[in-house]
């Protein structure tokens, strides 16, 4: 089982991102379980979404405390101590940031990938909706969902600007850098 945690702010499309990814895993025959912390869903407020993926039915009805993959839509929400303490061995961190991997000195020795999803979304004219760029990037780093499957789910899931979102995802896939120390993508 793989456990994935998404950190971001209301308005970035985080909840939908986790659902799109769940659908993509579902389409390739996996058992996904996806949820978001609700109650504080306001634009700008910190939001967390969660996704578990397994080959068989998932019985856990509890929170993800130790993710295999941590996805930061908002880099200001990074707590380096928490990442070091909770990220499972072999996992990775993906960060939306204008900086390169070396900027995140507090999480040395972990697999970290960076992508400037905010710039991509701006470029494609979809404002703060960085979720599709982040998902494209996720597909590159995780390597377990084919891009055509992601594209198919994006086309059936996003409410508008479909072509822009698809392009954003492709850009996210392409523009992702540095997965681990001395091991560039």
């Amino acid at each position: 089982m793989v456990e994935i945690k998404f950190y971001g702010r209301g308005g970035q499309g985080l909840v939908i991102a986790a659902q799109i990814l769940a659908k993509a895993y579902f389409l390739i025959g996996k058992y996904p379980q996806c949820y978001s912390l609700f109650g504080g869903e306001r634009r700008g407020a910190p939001v967390m979404s969660f996704l578990r993926v397994d080959d068989k039915k998932i019985y856990l009805k509890c929170e993800i405390k130790k993710p295999d993959r941590s996805i930061f839509f908002a880099p200001d929400l990074i707590d380096e101590d928490e990442i070091e303490r909770t990220l499972k061995p072999g996992g990775f961190v993906l960060i939306n940031t204008p900086f390169d991997r070396d900027h995140f000195k507090g999480i040395q020795g972990l697999r970290v990938a960076v992508v400037n999803a905010s710039a991509i979304a701006q470029e494609e004219g979809i404002g703060t909706a960085i979720n599709t760029a982040m998902l494209g990037s996720y597909c590159r780093v995780a390597g377990d969902i084919p891009m055509n499957v992601l594209e198919e789910v994006i086309r059936s899931s996003v409410p508008g600007k479909i072509e822009e979102n698809v392009k954003s995802a492709l850009q996210g896939y392409t523009m992702t850098t540095r997965i681990s120390e001395g091991n560039d993508l």
């Binding site: 769940a22 379980q33 949820y35």
Partner: peptide, 12 residues
């Protein structure tokens, strides 16, 4: 059903 763990958990 339970809040959240059922109501908001999306599963196959």
């Amino acid at each position: 059903i339970d809040a959240f763990f059922n109501s908001h958990f999306i599963e196959p």
